[in-house]
Protein backbone atom coordinates (compact mmCIF):
# COMPACT_ATOMS: atom_id res chain seq x y z
CA UNK A 1 0.00 0.00 0.00
CA UNK A 2 2.72 2.51 0.86
CA UNK A 3 4.21 2.08 -2.59
CA UNK A 4 1.57 4.59 -3.73
CA UNK A 5 3.31 7.43 -1.88
CA UNK A 6 6.65 6.10 -2.99
CA UNK A 7 5.68 5.99 -6.65
CA UNK A 8 4.31 9.53 -6.49
CA UNK A 9 7.68 10.60 -5.11
CA UNK A 10 9.56 8.75 -7.86
CA UNK A 11 7.48 10.54 -10.50
CA UNK A 12 8.17 13.89 -8.84
CA UNK A 13 11.92 13.24 -8.70
CA UNK A 14 12.26 12.08 -12.30
CA UNK A 15 10.18 15.00 -13.58
CA UNK A 16 12.50 17.43 -11.79
CA UNK A 17 15.53 15.93 -13.53
CA UNK A 18 14.08 15.33 -17.00
CA UNK A 19 13.92 18.98 -17.98
CA UNK A 20 10.74 18.50 -19.97
CA UNK A 21 12.17 15.64 -22.04
CA UNK A 22 10.43 12.32 -22.54
CA UNK A 23 11.68 9.78 -19.99
CA UNK A 24 12.37 6.34 -21.44
CA UNK A 25 14.01 4.54 -18.51
CA UNK A 26 14.13 4.94 -14.74
CA UNK A 27 16.83 3.18 -12.71
CA UNK A 28 15.93 2.51 -9.08
CA UNK A 29 18.16 1.09 -6.35
CA UNK A 30 16.29 -0.69 -3.55
CA UNK A 31 17.86 -2.45 -0.59
CA UNK A 32 16.29 -5.70 0.58
CA UNK A 33 15.91 -4.22 4.05
CA UNK A 34 13.74 -1.38 2.80
CA UNK A 35 10.10 -2.37 2.79
CA UNK A 36 9.43 -1.73 -0.87
CA UNK A 37 8.25 -4.28 -3.39
CA UNK A 38 9.17 -4.00 -7.07
CA UNK A 39 5.87 -5.34 -8.39
CA UNK A 40 3.88 -2.94 -6.27
CA UNK A 41 5.89 0.08 -7.43
CA UNK A 42 5.41 -1.12 -11.02
CA UNK A 43 1.66 -1.45 -10.41
CA UNK A 44 1.28 2.10 -9.13
CA UNK A 45 3.65 3.41 -11.79
CA UNK A 46 1.43 1.95 -14.51
CA UNK A 47 -1.52 3.77 -12.93
CA UNK A 48 0.17 7.11 -12.31
CA UNK A 49 2.62 7.58 -15.20
CA UNK A 50 0.15 8.11 -18.08
CA UNK A 51 -0.07 11.80 -18.89
CA UNK A 52 3.36 12.55 -17.36
CA UNK A 53 6.78 12.76 -19.02
CA UNK A 54 7.41 9.26 -17.66
CA UNK A 55 4.53 7.66 -19.55
CA UNK A 56 5.73 4.43 -21.13
CA UNK A 57 9.10 4.52 -19.35
CA UNK A 58 10.68 1.24 -18.28
CA UNK A 59 11.43 0.80 -14.58
CA UNK A 60 14.70 -0.96 -13.78
CA UNK A 61 15.07 -2.36 -10.26
CA UNK A 62 18.49 -3.00 -8.82
CA UNK A 63 18.05 -4.92 -5.54
CA UNK A 64 20.81 -4.70 -2.95
CA UNK A 65 21.09 -7.67 -0.55
CA UNK A 66 21.58 -7.09 3.16
CA UNK A 67 25.22 -7.16 4.27
CA UNK A 68 26.59 -7.13 7.80
CA UNK A 69 29.96 -6.00 9.06
CA UNK A 70 30.85 -8.09 12.09
CA UNK A 71 31.30 -5.94 15.18
CA UNK A 72 33.82 -8.37 16.63
CA UNK A 73 36.20 -8.92 13.69
CA UNK A 74 35.00 -6.48 10.96
CA UNK A 75 34.46 -9.33 8.50
CA UNK A 76 31.74 -8.44 5.96
CA UNK A 77 29.14 -11.07 5.16
CA UNK A 78 25.63 -11.67 3.87
CA UNK A 79 23.14 -13.05 6.42
CA UNK A 80 21.16 -15.93 5.00
CA UNK A 81 17.82 -16.87 6.55
CA UNK A 82 18.34 -17.76 10.18
CA UNK A 83 22.11 -17.80 9.83
CA UNK A 84 23.25 -14.46 11.14
CA UNK A 85 26.57 -15.63 12.53
CA UNK A 86 29.81 -14.23 11.20
CA UNK A 87 31.43 -17.02 9.16
CA UNK A 88 34.81 -15.78 10.34
CA UNK A 89 34.41 -15.55 14.13
CA UNK A 90 30.87 -16.73 14.95
CA UNK A 91 29.58 -13.46 16.47
CA UNK A 92 25.86 -12.89 15.91
CA UNK A 93 24.64 -10.10 13.63
CA UNK A 94 26.57 -7.01 12.71
CA UNK A 95 26.36 -3.44 11.54
CA UNK A 96 24.12 -3.17 8.49
CA UNK A 97 26.36 -1.81 5.72
CA UNK A 98 24.10 -2.51 2.75
CA UNK A 99 20.43 -3.22 2.17
CA UNK A 100 18.84 0.05 3.24
CA UNK A 101 19.28 1.82 -0.14
CA UNK A 102 16.25 3.47 -1.66
CA UNK A 103 16.90 6.00 -4.38
CA UNK A 104 16.55 6.95 -8.02
CA UNK A 105 19.98 6.33 -9.49
CA UNK A 106 19.48 7.80 -12.96
CA UNK A 107 17.04 8.27 -15.79
CA UNK A 108 17.32 8.11 -19.54
CA UNK A 109 15.53 10.65 -21.67
CA UNK A 110 14.92 10.93 -25.39
CA UNK A 111 16.78 14.07 -26.39
CA UNK A 112 14.88 16.82 -28.11
CA UNK A 113 16.38 17.52 -31.49
Amino acid sequence: MHELAVTEDILRIVAEHAGGQQITDIYLVIGDMSSFVDDSIQFYFDQLAPGTMAEGATLHFKRIPIRFRCRACAHEFKPVGLDWRCPNCGALGGEVIAGKEFYVESIEVASNK
Binding site: D9, F102, E108
Partner: peptide
Amino acid sequence: QEEIKRIPVVQRILSAN
Protein backbone atom coordinates in the same frame (compact mmCIF):
# COMPACT_ATOMS: atom_id res chain seq x y z
CA GLN B 1 23.73 7.63 -28.22
CA GLU B 2 22.21 10.12 -30.57
CA GLU B 3 18.76 9.71 -29.15
CA ILE B 4 19.01 8.65 -25.53
CA LYS B 5 20.69 10.68 -22.83
CA ARG B 6 21.46 9.30 -19.37
CA ILE B 7 20.92 11.76 -16.51
CA PRO B 8 22.37 10.89 -13.09
CA VAL B 9 19.87 11.56 -10.31
CA VAL B 10 20.91 9.79 -7.09
CA GLN B 11 18.09 11.24 -5.05
CA ARG B 12 16.57 9.47 -2.12
CA ILE B 13 12.94 8.50 -2.57
CA LEU B 14 10.63 9.88 0.14
CA SER B 15 12.65 13.08 0.34
CA ALA B 16 9.34 14.96 0.43
CA ASN B 17 8.29 13.02 3.55
